[in-house]
Design a protein around this nucleic acid. Sequence first.
DNA 1: TTGAAAGCGGTACCAT
DNA 2: ATGGTACCGCTTTCAA
Lengths: 328, 328
Amino acid sequence: MPVTIKDVARAAGVSPATVSRTLATPELVHADTRRRVQQAVDALGYKPNRAARGLITGRTGNLGLIVPDLTNPFFPGVVKGVQTRARESDYAVFLADTDEDPSAEADVVRNLSKQVDGIILCSPRMSEEELRSLTGETPIVMLNRRVGRMPSVTVNSADGIRQAVAHLTALGHRRIAYVPGPKLSWSNRERVRALRQHTAAAGVELVEVGNVAPQFAGGVAAADQVLATGVTAVLGYNDLVALGMLSRFAARGVAVPERISVMGFDDIVLSEMVNPSLTTLAQPKEQTGRAGVDLLLQLLADPERAFSRRELESHLMVRNSTGPAPTP
Amino acid sequence: MPVTIKDVARAAGVSPATVSRTLATPELVHADTRRRVQQAVDALGYKPNRAARGLITGRTGNLGLIVPDLTNPFFPGVVKGVQTRARESDYAVFLADTDEDPSAEADVVRNLSKQVDGIILCSPRMSEEELRSLTGETPIVMLNRRVGRMPSVTVNSADGIRQAVAHLTALGHRRIAYVPGPKLSWSNRERVRALRQHTAAAGVELVEVGNVAPQFAGGVAAADQVLATGVTAVLGYNDLVALGMLSRFAARGVAVPERISVMGFDDIVLSEMVNPSLTTLAQPKEQTGRAGVDLLLQLLADPERAFSRRELESHLMVRNSTGPAPTP
DNA sequence: TTGAAAGCGGTACCAT
DNA sequence: ATGGTACCGCTTTCAA
């Protein structure tokens, strides 16, 4: 028996309409009435039922967030950013973790679409057509991926990679390896593209080893291959992969960074907790989440501007897995 | 212009009521009609609006999950467990991260209460009275905390700690330190209690150092104090604290585990990625989340059973930050 | 077996 | 400035 608008109306001796106005457009109601209503609201602890409101206004005050795998340390930061920003604008957040299953993602979008004003979707692998078909269901903002004219938040990996390549060449490296993540991942493709471009420009040789799972185990598996190529520096698709290599190198007694320099992407918290700590390209995770919400709210306020993008910058976090170990 | 029940009704040449029945209680509608309706549903891609349904049934099909800090690596696992289990029962999940702010937690509960059938609350520090006052708003299941007769999912830390103490004493340790987390945290209090009991029983001296933040930095800060006590083994409140100590020990050239053994709680992914890898008491994170949903659904199905608990087991993950280093 | 109609908790339009 | 009323999308009596 939660308290409804009628209860408040009765308590304040006004009509439900007046209560509604007091809450939505206080300036349209007489100060005295407003006060009485407000008192009743407080006394009864009335909170409007958002679902009921949404039914008529078409606005739910909710938004959806879909991520492929929350246990990948990259995502909690993004989720947190979304969450925080959403709460600032009084939005609640539906979260779905799809276990890296692109088909689940589409389902989730469809299931959620009626209950949210829009969805923030982090789906690096779903096919473009499917993605586009979802756009009809509800407004969608893509995270870390650009497809067609869909609104998106991405990071400028080209510039980050320029920084990384510059860093490594400055240290004297002339042959560097890249351990790619999932073939279909948009981020991975971007990174490969940028790496080819910037290594070529710098006159440095790029050795691409085989794709691995974007996880610690993937890095462990790739480490020996990397060593066999004889490079003096290696970039992993993400920090987990890089940490896996670090671990395997340690097990084999390969000195980092003396024998080989190691870099990752993301700057997940772990990267500074290991020893040697991992040099990495920091992605603005919470900011990405916040920007996603910003974009979505913008879109809702002004649906004309259906096409709008936000590109964030990443920056190099130099730690001691590259170059000479710092003297303490 | 999403497709509504009326659209389907029109397309199938029946009344909205019949469409509703076809979906909810198919056995009450003639096979032929049922087929026609089903075709229309499929053709139009109709999905009932859950909010509208909830308005009348009183069931939203949503549940809320509140965690203090998603960037603490303990929680993503829990969230994932909740998420997965919820989806199996066709529930959607509202997630709120309260940034370790107990007052925000109460707000969130109140805001969400109308939109969910129940809430899974992970709030180690909120006061008991406040907690109890929230119970009136919506069904609540507590995670990792027991308060009064509220339904809860906890892990049996006493038994885990028994395992840990047995392990350390078996290795010959006679004085061990504990670095506690937040004073008010339920888990921390439980751990202290169990530690006192089991060390006493084993005739081992327990040295309790000052409370620290449940984070990497907290461990770094505590490490020197720990060393000063002259113990040969130390348990951190959680893995982050333990990792912080590991890091500081490495910096000071203190050999782990030769000079001092280190243990943590939680078994977050990092704990096996560092070197030496961290011995830890594994908490069943996803299982905790799943059990939370189970409990909540049980409660909803049978509100009489308002008091019901689930206690999970933790188990020791022995890795090489305790005892003699394994020979490779 | 099916349909008409009422109503869930709100909002918004139209009167007054 | 306020109230009456229709309606949002759906479910659920109640009759037919």
